[in-house]
Nucleic acid binder design. Structure first.
Lengths: 120, 120
DNA sequence: TCCATATTTCAATATTTTTTGAACTGTTTC
DNA sequence: GAAACAGTTCAAAAAATATTGAAATATGGA
């Protein structure tokens, strides 16, 4: 994952509304929710929800699909996993002579995302 | 991990300077770096570095230790792991009848943090 | 004690992000 | 095709965050 993308993802998760929103979509993965359902869960106006959805969408953390007159949103779990990998990838590599006791703590399983390269 | 803390952590990671800064400290874990060393790695003024260090410190993502006239900063790896667990904990639980193909992808190993409770 | 070093705090400014209400687009139903 | 519905876009105001330079604190060494 590129620095720029990781940055925009953490920026996207930096608002309380959007963190709640993203976690809601993670919870309702893999089917996701339509905008109206999301609005019922979170206490925000439609306009504001739309703004935050767009922010998450631009960051690439969620996807959108048209469904009649509804719009369905889903968390992009592989992107989330890549972001976690980005954060943890270089753990303790600053001192190559020491070995890192954290390295094994996070494993991003290749089985889930066979089509992507892993940095961990 | 509480919602409020997770929120402040993602807010802390939402600036490009702070994301670079935190990843630098993850890289130089577990020894960390003193402020002056950090300044050499990142291209920011002392004042600004201080501001961003304080933000990460308040969020609990890094720790600070006095060392003579230096201040040593370290990434708090367990807090980072808790945050990752917070983000991923409820994955796919919205549909209990379906089983979650992502659940196994992230494992936060208890061996690394025997003194804390795990939400994952 | 005086000076240099390491780093922080303060106050002002600049920039970015969030929120709001009103108006708009597209879809379904009658 | 008109009405109702789902959701978005727009523009303005409000709020939060980042950056800067100058001044302050605190340590270590001559």
């Amino acid at each position: 994952m590129e620095t720029k993308q990781a940055n925009s993802i953490f920026e996207a998760l930096s608002s309380d509304v959007r963190l709640d929103l993203f976690r809601l979509l993670v919870k309702y993965a893999p089917d996701g929710l339509v905008a109206g359902e999301i609005a019922k869960h979170l206490n925000v106006t439609n306009t504001n929800l739309s703004f935050h959805l767009k922010t998450l969408l631009r960051a690439g953390l969620i996807t959108m699909e048209k469904e009649g007159r509804f719009l369905r949103y889903r968390a992009d779990i592989p992107v989330m996993l890549d972001t976690i990998a980005y954060l943890t990838a270089e753990c303790c590599t600053g001192h190559p002579e020491q070995n890192c006791t954290h390295r094994a703590a996070i494993s991003v399983s290749p089985a889930v995302r066979p089509d992507r390269g892993f940095s961990g």
